[in-house]
Structures are given as C-alpha cells and as structure tokens.
C-alpha cells in the first residue's frame, strides 16, 4: 500500500499553483495518471521518486519515504523510472545497461526474453529503434525489483503500431512481476488497456478517480457515443440542415432540424452524441 499526502507550490502557466495530492494506492495496481500539461503529473512522479522535495508524507508498505523531517534518497526507495526519452547509456550494450542496475544476469536475460529482445542483448542503443530502446529502458527499470514503477509518458514518442506492441509488453511484465505502477498517459486506448485505476489531475488537484470506463467514457444523458468537435458550417438542404463538424483529424456531417440550426453558431465547440445502438462499426479499409 502506498499512502501519499503531499503539498508543493508550483509555478503554473497562470502563476502560482498548489499541488495538493492525497491518495492511497493498493499493491499490484496499475494507475494511469492523466490531465492537461502543467497539471502537476510529472512533478508528482518526481516527488514519488525522490527527485523533488515536497511537504507532507509518503509511506510505502509502512516505510516512510518522506515526512516533515526526512526525505529518503531516490536510490534507497526501490523505484523503477521509465522516461519518455529512454535515458540509456550509449556506450553500453543492451545487457550492460541492465546489469549496471544490478548484477543479475539471469533476471536480465529473463526480462529480455519476455519482451523478445534477447537476440539484441549485445547491441548498442544507437543501433536500436525507438520502440526497442524503450523496451530496454522498461527492462532496466525492472532490474532491481522495484516496489513502485513510475513511467512518464513512456510511449508518446512512438508510432501507433509500436505503442500497441509495447502496451502488450508492459502488460506482460505487470502480470509477471505484479509491480505497483503509476504511468502518466494521455492516450485513452492505452489507459483502458493497461490501467485498473485512472487519476485525473487538474491545476494540482485530483479531479477524477475511478476505473478507465467511468473516467474516460464521455456521455450526454443516455448517449454513449459522444465527441467534442468544432462546428465548421451549417448548410440548408431541402427541408433539413447539415452541420459540418471537425472531430480530431476528421470531418463528419450531422443532420439538424431548423431550431437546432438556429441555436448553433459556426466556429463554436460542440458535442456530438448518439446512442450506442446507432453507430455501425466495421474494420477500417485503410
């Protein structure tokens, strides 16, 4: 069990912003930490890792990592940290990067085998792809059997295909080692696939805390198929109106009646929703 009750004053984009987080995290859980940039996610990870100080307490399995008088050094906390930019030693081979953390050859080989990297053990990091480098960082973070694995947007620099592959590997490692994990992520599919709890920070405060579906599913009344977009145009066709809306990288059309067409303003942010029964789903042709 990890018990966190910390406070720290941060300098946000709108001036001073207090980070104020009180959380209990169960052993073996996989927590996704989400929220807009500048909401305090990375600072929270750094405080947990001992890379930054804060007021308050952090207690892990009864052991004090932080209290009013004391701050346990990062290397004594038993933490694995995976950064977005890999942070591997370029002059060491894959296996040397792992053994640098702990001289446990059997564990290093086991980890590399789990994520299908055992054949690349002697390679230097600069001969690896981004996805391969991140798999090595992940294994390295697991080398000292961490009590807590912290990952700061570990997959955000990777292409979608590689992301999916690494999500499966993170899941494989989590199942095998059952390491309590906190991962910063913005990707709904990643959060849904990996986490059993999602915490959303906003302006330094926890604003949502629940399972992936209850936090991420955007609903409007009984409408389960809901998106936010920008209203680009409204065109009258025969006796109906057609709204053109941009959602993500796509343009969609929605039929309106006259009163809706009158009330909506081109350029505004709109919510498009329908019941879960209406959409048709097919394998993408692309």
């Amino acid at each position: 069990m990890i018990e966190i009750a910390i406070e720290k004053e941060l300098l946000g984009s709108h001036g001073k912003m207090p980070l104020h987080v009180t959380l209990s995290i169960e052993d073996k859980s996989f927590v996704a930490l989400s929220g807009q940039s500048g909401s305090g996610k990375t600072t929270l990870l750094r405080i947990l890792a001992g890379l930054e100080n804060a007021r308050g307490t952090i207690r892990v399995d009864g052991e004090e990592w932080l209290n009013e008088k004391y701050m346990l050094a990062p290397q004594q906390r038993g933490i694995g940290f995976v950064f977005q930019d890999y942070a591997l030693f370029p002059n060491m081979s894959v296996i040397e990067n792992l053994l640098f953390v702990r001289q446990d050859k059997a564990l290093a080989q086991h980890l590399l085998k789990l994520i299908e990297m055992d054949e690349l053990a002697q390679r230097k990091p600069n001969t690896l792809s981004g996805g391969q480098k991140q798999r090595v960082s992940l294994c390295r973070a697991m080398m000292n059997h961490p009590k807590l694995l912290l990952m700061d947007e570990p997959l955000s620099a990777l292409d979608p295909l590689m992301r999916t592959k690494l999500q499966h590997e993170i899941l494989t490692l989590h199942k095998e080692f059952e390491t309590t994990t906190i991962m910063v992520s913005h990707d709904p599919s990643e959060i849904y696939r990996l986490s059993n709890r999602v915490i959303v920070l906003n302006q330094g405060n926890v604003i949502q805390d629940g399972d992936a579906k209850s936090v991420l599913l955007k609903t409007q009344g009984s409408q389960k198929f809901s998106f936010e977009g920008e209203l680009l145009d409204i065109i009258k066709v025969d006796v109906i109106y057609v709204a053109i809306v941009s959602i993500g990288q796509q343009i969609v059309e929605v039929v309106l009646d006259e009163s809706e067409a009158r009330e909506l303003h081109v350029g505004s942010v709109v919510n498009i929703s329908t019941k879960a029964f209406a959409p048709v789903i097919q394998t993408s042709k692309r």
């Binding site: 609903t219 009344g221 009984s222 389960k224 019941k275 879960a276 029964f277």
Partner: peptide
C-alpha cells in the same frame, strides 16, 4: 427506451 449504463 433501451440503453447501456444508466444516465447519472
């Protein structure tokens, strides 16, 4: 009406 999870 039929629906999935009940509205809040």
């Amino acid at each position: 009406m039929m629906g999935l999870d009940l509205p809040f």
